[in-house]
Nucleic acid binder design. Sequence first.
DNA 1: AGCTCATGCTTCGAATTCGAAGCAACAATG
DNA 2: CATTGTTGCTTCGAATTCGAAGCATGAGCT
Lengths: 168, 168
Amino acid sequence: MSHETAPLDAEQLGAYFALMEVSSLLQHAVDAHLRANGDLSYVQFQILARLTDAPEGRLRMTDLADGVVYSRSGLTYQAGLLEKRGLITRSPAPDDERSIVVAVTDVGRALVAQVLPGHIDVVRRLLFDSLERADLSALSGILGRVRSHMRTAPPRSAKPRANRTRAS
Amino acid sequence: MSHETAPLDAEQLGAYFALMEVSSLLQHAVDAHLRANGDLSYVQFQILARLTDAPEGRLRMTDLADGVVYSRSGLTYQAGLLEKRGLITRSPAPDDERSIVVAVTDVGRALVAQVLPGHIDVVRRLLFDSLERADLSALSGILGRVRSHMRTAPPRSAKPRANRTRAS
DNA sequence: AGCTCATGCTTCGAATTCGAAGCAACAATG
DNA sequence: CATTGTTGCTTCGAATTCGAAGCATGAGCT
């Protein structure tokens, strides 16, 4: 129904901007903390955390990339760095010769454990200290709904209206 | 008082992750759309949009950078690109000789107007189609509160625990 | 005025990011 | 099993990002 081009109302616009600003500020804060306390970027921490949570501490590259919303080439790069530091290992998958399985090492787990408390502290201070219990529940429910909706909806084909060849 | 290191409970953790994932997915989607329809990055669009909203379509560099949560050097770079494309102008401030005032041009406004409908469409489809009116109000209120709280709280000093010299 | 510190922007170099192209291993045909 | 298309990862080049350092102006003293 009301789909095509109707502008967002003020409340929607405000919510959208607030969402992006909050996540951006939060990410910067967290990133700074991780860098200072564990020499990890936000992305690297995400990768390690995701692995730590995974069944055996292992995941295929692609699944990992999807999990952290990240490009494959970018993951290859970061995986290289993390492997060099001994935080993860990469080994070919037994069943499928072309896919690589990434696994956290004990050192990696230890590092995550080391930075996690402070990380959580930052998140709490910035994000949750201003929320009542009820707000939290609401936020949690709403975002959960949005997320699953997003995972459903296709990426949009992006109608090519103005296609400049890019001023190289 | 419960401050120091107590872990976030499951609901908090879920909300945090959902927030970051949602904003990340949303940003990627919006970015792809902007690039395809106006050859703009998300950051560039933010800059233009912010200027379009500003009193006279003009802002000082620093205020603009703060507004979009962006580094100053990064803004200098992007401002250079946008200026080259004739979407903005840069001129020294009359009162303070060292600050630069950025202003959207008519071309810039036109471009924003051109991509805005599609942009809004993407946001609506991804973010708002899954929300009831009540959810929207709640989300808007909550995020607004969080945002103002964030603007208050200092950036955290980031206790230097492990400071490796960076494997250059 | 003369000094010193703060502020605003840019330049610089290093790190990170992405998509496109390249390569190998699978899968689905015939 | 040969042929063709798909999938998973890496390499490559170009663009973007950031912080530190550099410069110039402004502000607050004495």
